[in-house]
Simulated assay, not measured.
Amino acid sequence: MNTSRKLILGSSSLYRQQQLRRLQLPFQVAKPCFDEAPLPHETAPQTALRLAEGKARSLACAFPDALIIGSDQVAWCHEQQLGKPLTVAKAQQMLRCLRGQTVSFYSAVVLLNVAENRIHKHVDETQVTMRALTDAQIAHYLALEPDAVHCAGAAKSEGLGALLIERIDSSDPHALIGLPIFRLVDFLLAEGMEIL
């Protein structure tokens, strides 16, 4: 493996850390400092990509010789962006709006080569059809899966969120969890990393 550059995951998400660990590549985690508010007139894919890149670039000064991974995810339904609800009340409201709907999840990943100021970018779209759940089922789900308030659309697909979902259409099954692994591997190979 090319060990001349450290690999940094710019994310405090335990789910993204778990995803990257499965590749068995040495990396370290750093918490990015970047405003995650969407901008007016920005599309969901644009928001996801801007946030992923902003997170990676926010760590560039701290890791001047590293390859930094940035990622973000935005959900889109009813002509609006859906972020992380952060409270149970907002999660309940969000899931009520999403029941029986098809939601687009845009998962962005970037790989920043800080030393050469080279960046690789990708946004993966996953279409998720939600089940038509009752209010009682939504409340029960959120009681059993409290971390769902920290997931876009309150749907923690890698946990009990699978009970909310009727169908998933995606080119990368990892993307819905938050990190499009297939494209990330392409980026790492392009930067000369030996992954096997």
Results as ranks from 00 to 15, higher is better:
Asn2Met: 09
Asn2Leu: 02
Arg5Asp: 14
Arg5Ile: 08
Lys6His: 13
Ile8Lys: 00
Ile8Trp: 01
Gly10Glu: 05
Gly10Leu: 01
Ser12Phe: 07
Leu14Tyr: 14
Arg16His: 05
Gln17Met: 04
Arg21Tyr: 11
Leu25Met: 13
Pro26Met: 09
Pro26Phe: 05
Phe27Ser: 11
Gln28Asn: 12
Val29Arg: 09
Ala30Ser: 06
Pro32Cys: 01
Cys33Met: 11
Cys33Gly: 06
Cys33Tyr: 08
Asp35Thr: 04
Ala37Glu: 14
Leu39Thr: 11
Leu39Tyr: 12
Glu42Gly: 03
Glu42Ser: 01
Glu42Trp: 00
Ala44Cys: 09
Ala48Asn: 05
Ala48Ile: 03
Ala48Arg: 00
Ala48Glu: 06
Arg50Tyr: 11
Leu51Cys: 00
Ala52Arg: 00
Glu53Pro: 08
Glu53Phe: 01
Gly54Asp: 04
Ala56Gln: 08
Ala56Phe: 05
Ser58Tyr: 00
Ser58Trp: 04
Cys61Gly: 10
Phe63Ser: 05
Pro64Tyr: 08
Asp65Asn: 14
Asp65Leu: 10
Leu67Ala: 04
Ile69Asp: 13
Gly70Thr: 03
Gly70Asp: 00
Asp72Met: 00
Asp72Tyr: 07
Val74Thr: 12
Trp76Gln: 10
His78Lys: 14
Gln81Ile: 03
Thr87Ile: 01
Ala89Leu: 10
Gln92Glu: 15
Met94Glu: 12
Leu95Asn: 08
Cys97Gln: 15
Arg99Phe: 06
Ser104Gln: 13
Phe105Pro: 02
Ala108Thr: 03
Val110Ser: 14
Leu111Arg: 04
Asn113Gly: 06
Val114Leu: 05
Val114Tyr: 00
Ala115Thr: 07
Glu116Gln: 15
Glu116Ile: 05
Asn117Thr: 08
His120Gln: 15
Asp124Trp: 10
Asp124His: 06
Asp124Met: 07
Gln127Gly: 08
Val128His: 04
Leu133His: 11
Ala139His: 09
His140Gly: 07
His140Arg: 09
Leu142Cys: 04
Leu142Gln: 06
Ala143Asp: 10
Pro146Thr: 10
Asp147Cys: 06
Ala148Glu: 13
Val149Tyr: 07
His150Gly: 08
Cys151Glu: 10
Ala152Val: 07
Gly153Arg: 01
Ala154Lys: 01
Ala154Gly: 11
Ala155Asp: 10
Ala155Val: 00
Ser157Val: 05
Glu158Tyr: 14
Glu158Ile: 14
Leu160Ile: 06
Ala162Met: 12
Ala162His: 11
Asp169Gly: 11
Ser170Ala: 09
Ser171Trp: 08
Ser171Cys: 13
Ala175Phe: 13
Leu176Phe: 12
Ile177Lys: 09
Gly178Ser: 01
Gly178Asn: 07
Gly178Leu: 05
Phe182Asn: 13
Arg183Ile: 08
Val185Pro: 08
Asp186Tyr: 09
Asp186Gly: 05
Asp186His: 10
Phe187Ser: 02
Ala190Trp: 12
Ala190Arg: 15
Ala190Pro: 13
Glu191Ser: 08
Ile195Ala: 09
Ile195Gly: 01
Leu196Tyr: 14
